[in-house]
């Protein structure tokens, strides 16, 4: 009996490994190995030895630094904007029920269903030159707006729009841990909305906000499609910059260097985010 059990377990172990072998192999071949290769390959060159020339170039090249700076502030601003826009909606949805709330939720989550190419296209038709906003302004005999299209404001607006649902869901799952009774209890004792938010709600969702910001930074730092289609050509964000370096300039070494630099800038956020999801979903029991 025991022997049978043990052989069953051994079978389980072996078949378990076999079943995960293919995805793991793919992961190693196409993710872990390339990352390692990128890190080593940009500083060690067979035959010539160690050199950090490509990094030195990046950090002395004025254009690269301007791109990095643009990426940093657009990422920071967009993450904060996403949280600022999503927070009131999340608070409303947490503490209200009813058909209006259901509609608000459906609308706020809607961008999840819209691919980013369509976001870019619709953006141009609305906020681009002679877009619908201009049309309306002209009809009202008002001056046209300076279009955000092809300025840093373009990708920022597009990325906030695109990222609203996930930010909202992350905040909502954090707010789920704030029980309505605990908020009622504070109201009962005389806490106003501001006190409620700062003293009761905020301390409970601090960690969710940090995770939400980390998740946003990871997604934004190397965003490609929206910055490419809506943003300025120069300076450009790291995503388009890497793409141009790799494809148009056919310069994989510098493109990889840029990639490693984005890894480095995101490392802390990556750690925060992965720790949070590993803890949250625990993975296999």
């Amino acid at each position: 009996m025991i022997a049978a059990l043990r052989s069953g377990m051994m079978g389980g172990r072996l078949s378990g490994l076999l079943l995960v072998a293919l995805p793991v192999a793919l992961l190693i071949w196409l993710v872990l190995w390339p990352v390692l290769q990128a890190m080593v390959g940009t500083v060690y060159f067979p035959g010539t030895g160690f050199s950090t020339a490509s990094y030195a170039y990046f950090f002395t090249d004025d254009y690269s630094l301007r791109n990095l700076w643009l990426t940093l502030w657009v990422t920071a601003l967009t993450s904060v904007l996403r949280v600022t826009v999503a927070m009131p909606i999340a608070l409303y949805l947490r503490f209200r029920t009813g058909s209006v709330a259901a509609l608000v939720q459906a609308l706020a989550l809607f961008p999840m269903f819209v691919p980013s190419v369509l976001v870019a296209y619709a953006f141009i038709r609305v906020l681009g030159p002679n877009g619908i906003v201009d049309t309306v302004l002209v009809a009202l005999h008002l001056p046209k707006l300076a279009s955000p299209y092809l300025t840093p404001a373009g990708p920022i607006i597009g990325l906030v729009w695109d990222g609203l649902p996930l930010t909202l869901l992350l905040l909502l799952s954090g707010l789920g841990r704030v029980s309505i009774a605990s908020v009622d209890a504070a109201r009962d004792l005389g806490a106003g909305s501001f006190t409620l938010f700062t003293r009761i709600i905020l301390p409970r969702i601090q960690s969710s906000i940090i995770v939400t910001l980390a998740f946003n930074v990871l997604g934004l730092f190397s965003a490609f499609t929206l910055p490419f289609l809506l943003g300025p050509a120069s300076p450009e964000m790291m995503g388009p910059y890497m793409q141009r370096t790799f494809s148009d300039n056919a310069d994989p070494l510098n493109a990889t260097t840029q990639a490693v630099i984005t890894f480095a800038f995101c490392a802390a956020f990556g750690l925060i985010y992965v720790r949070a999801i590993a803890k949250g979903r625990k993975g296999p029991a």
Binding site: P23, V24, L27, L30, V31, L32, W33, P34, V35, Q37, A38, G41, L218, G219, F221, S222, A223, F224, M238, G239, M242, Q243, F246, P252, A255, T256, Q258, A259, V260, T262, F263, C266, A267, G270, L271, Y273, V274, I277, A278, G283
Partner: peptide
């Protein structure tokens, strides 16, 4: 955890790294 750790990297950076391979 290795699968989850992919999440810690900005996506386009990963694509560049893979593209080099």
């Amino acid at each position: 955890l290795a699968f989850l750790s992919v999440q810690a990297f900005p996506k386009f950076g990963l694509i560049i790294a893979t593209a080099t391979i």
